[in-house]
Computed example of a mutant assay.
Amino acid sequence: MRDFSWQYFSLTGDVDAYLLYKEINMDSVSDETDEDLNDESEDTLQ
């Protein structure tokens, strides 16, 4: 979905497509950060 919204934005210049891309990108970065934090906390518990 992220690639599609970026391609659509690059072809049309549609601001809503760019905002969707940014939102999806921020969610994926947030999820990766959460997973890293969970992995680190599990390591310290062992």
Rank of each mutant, 00 (worst) to 15 (best):
M1Q: 09
M1F: 11
R2I: 06
D3A: 09
D3M: 06
F4E: 13
F4H: 11
S5F: 09
S5Q: 10
W6V: 04
W6M: 10
Q7S: 06
Q7Y: 06
Q7M: 09
F9P: 00
S10H: 08
S10A: 13
S10R: 15
T12E: 00
T12W: 04
T12I: 00
T12G: 03
G13N: 02
G13K: 05
D14S: 04
V15Y: 09
D16L: 13
D16H: 15
A17C: 04
Y18S: 06
Y18F: 14
Y18D: 02
Y18G: 03
L19I: 07
L19G: 05
L19D: 08
Y21L: 04
Y21G: 03
Y21Q: 02
K22W: 08
K22P: 02
K22A: 12
E23A: 13
E23F: 03
I24H: 03
I24L: 05
N25M: 14
M26L: 14
S28K: 15
V29F: 07
V29W: 08
D31N: 12
E32M: 14
E32V: 07
E32P: 05
E32W: 10
T33F: 12
T33S: 11
D34W: 06
L37T: 00
L37Y: 12
N38V: 12
D39I: 13
E40P: 04
E40A: 07
S41T: 05
S41G: 02
E42P: 01
E42G: 00
T44G: 03
T44K: 07
